[in-house]
């Protein structure tokens, strides 16, 4: 996962100072996504104890931040902004379930390292934590599983996170990505239900769990690894859902991670190839606070 932060040119005169609410919910607020994911984490932990352990999550965060600092200093020679690494670490801490300590360190390391090692035309193409989590699930299944449980047994935590998350992601101008994915997922759930003969509610069930909330709000909306343009973003989000359906029909438990792992980089490469042949990007391009330029 990474952050959904858009940097846009100011449209208001300097004299008209925006209110603190506007500034807080502004797409330029780099601390909003980390704050949001931290709130989700704390609420989930204190209410339901969702974490394998607090220590393991801290280990994932510390590893992630440490790797970011080391690699940024060594490769770029500068001090990085740590919000992205923090989100990657906290995502690993929530999404990875393992009785051991080393997977948390390894997954965080892989997530950050992938940003620096795998690049296309100067930018990374995989969502960092998606890369790390997918690699761990694929290579180390005996030691790692992903978060697959619900939060509690009532509806309100799920509804609360969906509502607050939607408002925040709307302010960050990424809501259309989430909506496209969720809409496509729901439709394809019906298709899957028809194909398999399973109840539709069982096909939809994953969407009611916290893993999907994190996946939808943080992973597929990551600016550096999403394509440019409203329509393209909606299309790619839907394609991820389609790939996920194919994987699910083949009984792949961790289908959403692998779907994004497969679709995301291809979409990025194609998008950048097309854009490199057109006009240079406008000043209003999205830029990730976690990107390494």
């Amino acid at each position: 996962m990474n952050t959904a932060v858009a940097r846009v040119p100011s449209e208001t005169p300097m004299a008209d100072a925006p209110s603190w609410q506007s500034r807080f919910f502004s797409p330029n607020n780099r601390y909003l996504p980390p704050l949001f994911i931290t709130c989700i984490l704390l609420a989930g932990q204190f209410e339901f104890g969702v974490l394998e352990s607090g220590g393991r999550t801290l280990l994932a965060i510390a590893t992630s931040i440490g790797m970011e600092i080391i690699l940024s200093r060594l490769v770029l020679g500068k001090w990085p902004h740590l919000a992205s690494a923090y989100i990657s670490g906290i995502s690993v801490g929530i999404l990875v379930r393992s009785p051991f300590l080393w997977p948390y360190m390894l997954c965080s390391s892989l997530s950050i390292l992938s940003k620096y090692a795998i690049r296309w035309r100067g930018r990374h193409i995989w969502n960092p934590s998606n890369f790390g989590v997918s690699a761990m699930l694929f290579l180390y299944p005996a030691a790692v599983a992903s978060l697959s449980i619900q939060w509690g047994n009532t509806l309100w935590p799920m509804i609360t996170v969906w509502c607050i998350g939607s408002v925040i992601i709307f302010r960050l101008r990424r809501f259309h990505i989430c909506a496209s994915y969720v809409g496509t997922f729901l439709f394809l759930s019906w298709i899957r239900s028809e194909v398999t003969g399973n109840p539709w509610l069982s096909a939809v069930a994953p969407l009611t769990g916290p893993m999907y909330q994190l996946f939808v709000f943080f992973m597929i909306t990551d600016p550096p690894t999403t394509v440019r343009g409203w329509r393209s973003q909606c299309l790619v989000a839907s394609l991820i859902a389609v790939a996920e359906m194919v994987l699910r029909l083949n009984g792949v438990v961790d289908a959403p991670y692998y779907a994004l792992f497969l679709v995301g980089p291809v979409a990025n490469v194609v998008d950048r190839a097309i854009r490199s042949q057109s006009a240079p990007p406008s000043p209003g391009v999205l830029e990730s606070q976690g990107s390494v330029s």
Binding site: S148, Q150, L155, S202, V204, A205, T208, G251
Partner: peptide, 13 residues
């Protein structure tokens, strides 16, 4: 696969 899908669902499911 089916087990992991349903057990992630909400109480009502």
């Amino acid at each position: 696969y089916d087990f992991s899908e349903i057990t992630g669902g909400n109480a009502s499911i």
